[in-house]
Design a protein around this nucleic acid. Structure first.
Lengths: 170, 170
DNA sequence: ATTGACAGTTCTAAAATAGAACTTATGGTC
DNA sequence: GACCATAAGTTCTATTTTAGAACTGTCAAT
């Protein structure tokens, strides 16, 4: 499958993966949330090749996640800053960091701690239901087809039916 | 940078990206949460090449996200099911889906809707502070170095200092 | 005039991925 | 017994992506 095809999938996860689903994009975005804004700073901070950094920044701008803002004329220089669409990625970043904190830390413990300025405490992110406020887990969620579903898609179609068959036989 | 180096970074995001930060792993995990369990079902559902699917499943098992469970002898066959570590990825999956729902859907609307069985309503996931319960946004969070931070790391070190310099000059 | 900062671009070699065919083990059908 | 199907991979070559380093263009300061 090509990357371009991913953008067209009738699946919100696939379409988001088209934006952030490579090795570097999420790391670049982490730096953005840590207030890194300039090309050479990204490069020094991440150890990414300049070639790929240029390519990924271009992609993130194209998707509207970052915006180029001039910070000097002559020579023209730009900073890359998060748009609202980019800021909205924060829950994704935080849930990834949290999973790593729980499952991937070594003996030394967490690399970073997060303080919630509103309440002044160190916190972990918790994902809750928008309607009742209870914490979410996979087993309490049921999935329904929405208006944008496409039946003929390779995703969600054939394999699910086969698996249902398997389940019924068991 | 090599994938192996990513696992060793003193950054919970980088270490999680080492597990799920490629084009296919998240898509495979989505299928897991939709109760796909078998090799050929993953393959038919995703259109991934068999080679890569075998490789990714192996990786996810190695990281303890999936577990192989035999479902028949002669010939020996296995299903891939989520471990608790894998189930804990649910907030990541849901926040990705939600971002796609908000920012990447086309005119037809959302491909899937989510019902919270506990309260019976269609919901969106919301990320809140574990201490005060308020919704989180990047601007209300302050980051502190934790016990596992490494100062000499290429990540978080040089570029941040340079950027601080830049900020001070401005 | 030379050096350094900044933001890229260009180049070659190495690694990862796509796409298709092949393998192994078994059970059922003609 | 020969043939086909199922399931879970493995192997193969061609293409694409990435790594790593060097190079370019613009300007400011020394």
């Amino acid at each position: 499958m090509k990357w371009d095809a991913l953008e067209e999938e009738p699946c919100s996860l696939a379409r988001t993966v088209a934006v952030i689903g490579d090795r570097w994009s999420l790391l670049i975005l982490r730096e953005c949330f840590l207030r890194i804004r300039r090309f050479d700073d990204f490069q020094a901070s991440l150890g990414i090749t300049r070639h790929l950094l240029a390519d990924r920044l271009k992609k993130l701008v194209r998707f509207g996640v970052l915006r180029k803002i001039p910070y000097q004329e002559a020579p023209k220089r730009y900073e890359y800053i998060l748009t609202q669409k980019g800021l909205d990625l924060y829950p994704i970043i935080m849930s990834i960091v949290h999973w790593g904190n729980i499952h991937m830390v070594d003996a030394r413990g967490r690399p970073l701690l997060h303080e919630h300025k509103s309440c002044g405490k160190m916190f972990d992110p918790v994902m809750v239901c928008s309607e009742c406020g209870e914490p979410l887990s996979a087993k309490h969620v049921h999935v329904h087809p929405g208006p944008g579903v496409r039946r003929s898609s390779p995703l969600h179609a054939s394999a699910r039916e086969r698996t249902k068959r398997n389940a019924e036989q068991a």
